[in-house]
Amino acid sequence: MRWLRIAALLVVFGFLVGAAVWTRPFGAPQAMEMDEHFIERSQEEAAANNVVTAVLFDYRGFDTLGEATVLFAAVVGVALVLRRWAR
């Protein structure tokens, strides 16, 4: 029974390693149109040399707004839980 478990573990581990290594070479994603668009156009469209910042605050600003909301919710949650002790 024990050997069966170890064998199953090895099989799963080997499958995962194989999947990671063979499915796609590193740095070669399936679809590159969006990447190329951001890298080539972010300077003229968003006026930023940092493509990550251009994506974060310009192309996907809504995403950042949601992240800020999540942070606010976290703060409110902590304050709510600790409100009696942290007076």
Binding site: A46, A47, A48, T53, F57, G61, T64, A68, V75, L82
Partner: peptide, 29 residues
């Protein structure tokens, strides 16, 4: 350069510093 981006960076920076800071402060209290 950057137009809105630096200003938004400042806004988000203020927000994150205040949010995480108050979490740490509340847990310390």
């Amino acid at each position: 350069t950057g137009g809105m981006l630096p200003l938004m960076n400042w806004a988000v920076g203020l927000k994150v510093l205040a949010g995480l800071g108050s979490i740490v402060l509340l847990m310390g209290l």
